[in-house]
Design a protein around this nucleic acid. Structure first.
Lengths: 195, 195
DNA sequence: GTCTATACGGTGATAGAC
DNA sequence: GTCTATCACCGTATAGAC
């Protein structure tokens, strides 16, 4: 119990801070301070240090992303409706953090993919999971296997790109416009939809 | 002359290094070492230090991105053909850097948009320029004004997302698949195309 | 499990000679 | 314009007591 919450608080703080300032921009001291977890616990739970902690944070945020996506997609039979709900939630997340959050995986991936296989693999797995959820739902909506796979890839890329543009513009507008455009394209594309 | 090349070498090195390791992950010493520019020149040309240098690097890479995009789009009458050429060049750039480069704006934007207005503005301007080029070409290809604007936004987001996924997968495959999917969607969407 | 103290390198930045 | 020396600070990581 006490073990789990201390570790958990550290992972939560690391994830939140790195989502805003990135991997190299986030200090271990800052993580401890924000988490209000015991200072001595960090290297107890993460013997390999910052890299291991960041991997755990990336894994967790990936799982949360998948959970949100699954929840929104299950809620609607039509994948376009589900996607729009997801994008709305994403926009809320970004604005409620003063447009300084979103794309927690992208920052870590871009900063560290070249240096740390461990972190690259954690991000890769998270993106694969997101794409798997999308692909499954697209298949269920009557898209062909090939198209489901590639559309899932495009959507996951658009999600990350949308957040980047939103943070740069300091507004949720790009996310909303990209969501709408994606929805229109999904409906217009030939996809063997079951009507 | 000597003035220009020294400054230029520093900006080039800063841009290349930050493209791989990000803003906080790139040290000033490393920039000087790689650039082989005089150590004393850094704060002479960039009195405001690292932030000013990074802004110059972001501006330059943005201009290069616009230049490549314009070149490829002008080369083909059909925007889809031009875009495919651009994505091919992007994939080449990524693989020729061992999948550790690409998306130079995205890293800086995600790391620093919350802390530095100067850097956020530099990235914002670059993205706006890219979108402007795309929008103009879409208009010329018969897409409506609204759709041209939003498609340009989606495409710019997909470019960044594609590079992120390619770097995580250490392969150009995601870029190629996203390009193909984007091309198919551009052709399928209702757009008042002049046939 | 957690704490404190500390080692040690690297960081961005500045001053003053040339 | 450029160099060198030096600054104060912060980073991660470790050691050893409790």
């Amino acid at each position: 119990m006490t073990e789990r919450t201390a570790r958990q608080k550290i992972v939560d703080a690391a994830g939140a801070l790195m989502e805003k300032r990135g991997y190299h921009g986030t200090g271990l001291n800052e993580i401890i301070q924000v988490s209000q977890a015991p200072r001595g616990s960090l290297y107890y739970y993460f013997p390999a240090g910052k890299e291991e902690l960041a991997a755990a944070a990336a894994r967790q945020t990936g799982e949360m992303m998948v959970a949100y996506l699954e929840r929104d997609l299950e809620r609607h039979a039509d994948i376009v409706d589900g996607l729009m709900t997801f994008f709305t939630g994403l926009a809320d997340h970004v604005v409620s953090n003063n447009c300084q959050a979103g794309a927690p995986l992208a920052v870590i991936a871009l900063e560290t993919a070249g240096e740390s296989d461990r972190l690259r693999e954690a991000c890769r797995h998270a993106y694969q999971s997101v794409q798997a959820v999308l692909e499954r739902k697209l298949l269920g909506n009557g898209y062909t296997p090939d198209r489901s796979r590639d559309l899932a890839l495009l959507i996951s890329a658009a999600i990350e790109g949308a957040v980047i543009l939103a943070r740069v513009e300091q507004a949720a507008d790009p996310i909303r416009r990209i969501a709408a455009q994606l929805g229109a394209l999904l409906l217009a594309t030939p996809h063997c939809r079951i009507e």
